[in-house]
Design a protein around this nucleic acid. Structure first.
Lengths: 221, 221
DNA sequence: GATAAATAACTAACCAGTCAGTAATATAGA
DNA sequence: TCTATATTACTGACTGGTTAGTTATTTATC
């Protein structure tokens, strides 16, 4: 009689690591395919579990998505809030700091795919849109407006409508991410991300600068 | 005996107007729901026909979408190309002209929903993405780069990488459209489109201006 | 052996695209 | 001008494939 081969178990119990493995897999598939087109079976396969297991840890596709956002974006926002609260120095430096931090923690990571995803799916999944808006966007925009307010108050930036300025500041950065995760694949040559982000922040600061105080003025002195 | 009631026919033959009625309905539904989530039955209902009729005039959902783009966006691009070819004057004025024309023909019309749609669906529908990229985006970007090139050559704009500058120029405008067609619905107060577009173009021109030639310099003189 | 963790087969609902049939219109013959 | 016949625009039921979420069952671990 042949001795029993040392069989691997077909699966093992790993209750405490499953959720993060599943959210990591979910982030990848969500970013690749969008929310609606993501098959939970694919997420499960990429996490090395079966579809049923996903439902053991998350009530629904929507809850799974919220978990991804909570894990990746909320901490980054909290971090940025600390930066703003603790910042002493020029408003330009604060803006540079915020953009660089955002690029490091979000833009250049797999979480950088989420803005495009939210833009794409908000109309069809209003509950998710609401969640994302309340938990992420409102807070991010508040930070930008605070930095802009300080700069205008100190005379560093020319004074203009805060909401308009805030929109103009985040546009080139979010648009870049959105582009990278959508139509960039059709391009033959694409921009270098690091260089672009650097150029963009300087361009924005030129646009904001009060007459006689911007980078131009410095160069002229 | 009651005289025969003047019965309306259940439908009438209207071969020549069907296609444009169907594309008009399709544009509405595509913009509301996106490409994937659009049900051809809904498009048909909105156009006042049955689903079978849509397939009499268009081979597939994809072809229907392409027809919408051909009808609305390609003529606007052609118009812009004429403007650039015929323009005599400063590069700033050319850019203002292009943005205003785009806003009038696309941004402020139902076609303004298409950029967000393409961004959303390009990953999952590469053939449509390719079509849109070749027929619309390449041509639009070429126009912007041409205007920027002229401005840099004449010394009106500071000289910088053309592709970077081009991306920075279109970002605030496309981002605005994208926002209006996605997460703007979560906002309590939203920007006035006309005012925003005006502010944005001036901000962009400040960012581009060569030292001593921008709106700031004029104000200082 | 008890039970928590994981699987896999299943259900119910959805929709692009097809096609057999129907009803509106055109036209030929009286 | 009336009617019979031919044409074709249009309809709507149906098919085949897909997937979120459920449940019955199996397997690992204590």
């Amino acid at each position: 009689m042949v001795s029993a081969p040392a069989r691997q178990p077909r699966w093992t119990r790993r209750k405490n690591v499953r959720p993060s493995e599943i959210t990591a897999a979910a982030l990848e598939v969500f970013v690749e395919k969008g929310f609606a087109a993501t098959r939970l079976e694919d997420v499960a396969a990429r996490a090395g579990v079966s579809k049923g297991t996903v439902y053991l840890y998350f009530d629904s596709k929507e809850e799974l998505f919220k978990a991804v956002v909570r894990e990746g974006l909320i901490p980054a926002i909290a971090e940025a809030e600390k930066r703003v609260a603790g910042h002493r120095g020029s408003a330009s430096d604060l803006l540079r700091d915020l953009v660089r931090g955002w690029w490091q923690l979000v833009g250049s990571t797999p979480y950088g795919g989420l803005p495009k995803l939210m833009i794409s799916e908000s109309r069809n999944f209003p509950e998710i849109a609401r969640f994302y808006y309340e938990e992420v966007i409102i807070r991010a925009h508040r930070l930008l407006r605070e930095a802009l307010r300080r700069g205008m108050e100190s005379g560093e930036f020319r004074s203009m409508d805060l909401n308009t300025a805030q929109f103009l500041v985040f546009s080139p950065f979010i648009m870049f991410l959105v582009w990278q995760h959508s139509l960039a694949c059709c391009e033959s040559e694409s921009l270098d991300p690091g260089a672009y982000v650097g150029e963009a922040i300087e361009m924005v600061l030129r646009g904001l600068a009060a007459p006689g105080t911007g980078p131009q003025a410095k160069a002229r002195r």
